[in-house]
Design a protein around this nucleic acid. Structure first.
Lengths: 115, 115
DNA sequence: CTTGTTGTTCGTAGTTTTGCGAAATACGAA
DNA sequence: TTCGTATTTCGCAAAACTACGAACAACAAG
């Protein structure tokens, strides 16, 4: 998603295209992570994976009141945001937090929430 | 939004309705706050109000590359989530963080992100 | 009371999210 | 290879989100 102002100025026969976006990359990243956490199911899953350990999709389906396919989409959402990762242990898939990005998220929230 | 399992059991001629929801209230609150922060514009506004001071809607419109009406909706979203509040200084409206809820959000993120 | 300034609300449009069940996929085991 | 298990992908529908401009509301100032 684009969130910037495009300003075009002409000097003589030169063309300048300058994008002035008051929203920083950090704020955009923060928003991306926040969005991923912005659903009860996903907040629950993250909580579980962060404070505890890895788990299988099936473990979650047993506990959560949603269809398997719906859970799968939430996991995909978290994966796309970079907060978790899944490794195949056929026929299961073990999900864990993506340490690197999780730490980045921690840093961002810490900074922007003034913690 | 409901995220729980409804389990109904019958004992003799008594009816039990029990809601078993693995997702805690804290996780739901966290998700609510995170959702509100989950857009670049809103992340920007929160950053501004939290790290700096209050500001008027007009101040933001000058800087942000979105229509007034769109900004107004984002501010409403933040207000509905409880993260900011607005007080009339006619004909302007001054927006500030809602201190009480902001602190709750800080606490929740701190706890659930393991900070 | 009229005007100008500041924001919100409304109507509309297109996109994304959320959710489900059914079908498809992946893969070890028999 | 065929079967069973675990999970994803597909197709669909309803709801929510994002965004805009036009119209409206609030109110101080003249």
């Amino acid at each position: 998603m684009f969130c910037g102002k495009i300003i075009v100025r002409n000097f003589a026969n030169m063309n300048f295209k300058m994008q002035i976006d008051p929203i920083t990359d950090e704020q955009k990243k923060l928003a991306r992570y926040a969005k991923a956490m912005g659903h009860p199911v996903r907040a629950y899953v993250l909580d579980l994976l962060a404070n505890q350990s890895c788990c299988y999709s099936g473990d979650l389906t047993e506990v959560l009141p949603i269809a398997k396919s719906t859970l799968s989409q939430h996991l995909k959402e978290l994966k796309d945001a970079g907060l978790i990762q899944g490794q195949t242990e056929a026929p299961k898939i073990k999900y864990c937090v993506n340490k690197e990005n999780w730490e980045e998220a921690q840093k961002l929230f810490k900074k922007h929430l003034g913690l």
